[in-house]
Amino acid sequence: MSFSHSWIEAVPAASVSIVTAFTGIAWWNVPPAMVTAETVLVPAGAFDFEPTGEFVEGGIEIDPGDRPVVFRHPIEIMKFQVTLSDYQRCVSARKCDAPDTRSADGEAPVVGINFLDAEAYADWYSSLTGEEWRLPAPEEWAYVAAERFAGEVFTRAQDPSNPAIAWIRRYEEQILLDREPDPVIHPAGHFGPNSNGVADLGGNVWEWTSGCYTRIEQDSDGNSLGAPYQNCGIRIAEGVHRSYMSNFIRNGKSGGCAVGTPPDHLGFRLVKDAESSSGLARLGRTFAKLMSL
């Protein structure tokens, strides 16, 4: 695994000088350099996405079908999931809670992570780097995952007008129900890159996204009946299949709202907002970081 420049090298010299003038803190007193995660830039484009949530018509859950999604800007995403050693830096800074993991391999993905842990890390990492990092939206994760995206498998109703859909669903469900759990926490890169060059998607670590559980009732013409119900205490984790998990759950096998076979492990990776790398945004975060010392 390779890394880009260190945090201190990423801060423009002019910014360091200005911050020093305001705070009286010399640049050499900045905390030890932190390497930044290797990222992949996935080009802008469009794809058909099976939306998240529960769609109900006449009291019966239905399959809403795929819907077009367009990304007008590239998506910059971490090539690997956040590792244990990466996450432990946040724990050492007292900005993250310790994970529930049995692995001691710092280069393996951090697991035993709930949604709130992942959010705390994103906030800390953003402050440290002077850039805006966040969990991907489900649509972003699916687009980046490409051929490794599975999405909904267990929860969609049959389409009476097309029995082939029901047969395919049952076949996919049976494969996943027969899938053997993989409790081993493999090193980063174990499952290899996908066609976009992003590693370990669809492996045995499900990844938290920013998506909330939603329930949408609609009429026979596909029109929504009232406002959608949304519960952000339940979040979406993507992996071998989509899972709806309570945001405080660290172990998918312990409960939550997982559908189908529970996730082997829960971890995460982050995406970077392009506009966050502007000079003023970086300077503001750098100033806030040094003021907190």
Rank of each mutant, 00 (worst) to 15 (best):
M291I: 13
P31M: 04
I77W: 02
F154E: 01
N247V: 06
C257D: 11
Y244I: 02
P51F: 01
E107T: 15
H5T: 13
R67S: 12
P193K: 05
E217T: 13
A98E: 14
V271K: 02
L41G: 00
T129M: 03
L283D: 08
G112F: 00
T20G: 05
Q88S: 08
E238M: 14
R235G: 00
G203S: 07
G24H: 06
S4D: 12
I62V: 15
I168T: 14
P74D: 00
D86C: 04
R179E: 13
E147R: 08
A21M: 10
W167C: 10
V153Q: 03
G130N: 06
I8C: 12
S278V: 09
A199K: 05
H186S: 07
Y125D: 03
W27K: 15
D66P: 11
L41N: 13
L177H: 09
T286Q: 10
D219R: 09
V82A: 08
Y143F: 14
V35M: 14
R282H: 13
L266D: 04
A164Q: 15
P181G: 04
I216F: 01
S243A: 12
P228T: 04
T23I: 06
I60Y: 06
S126M: 02
A137T: 14
E131C: 11
N29R: 15
C257I: 02
G284H: 11
P32G: 08
P263Y: 01
D100W: 09
A166E: 15
R134Q: 07
A164Y: 10
A258D: 07
L290E: 09
H190N: 09
G222L: 11
A188P: 00
A274W: 03
A137P: 02
R156C: 01
L283V: 07
M291A: 15
W208F: 07
C212F: 07
R250I: 05
E139N: 01
G222E: 11
L177C: 06
L84Q: 10
G197A: 10
A108L: 00
G203E: 06
G222M: 11
I249F: 00
A188N: 04
Y171S: 12
P32K: 05
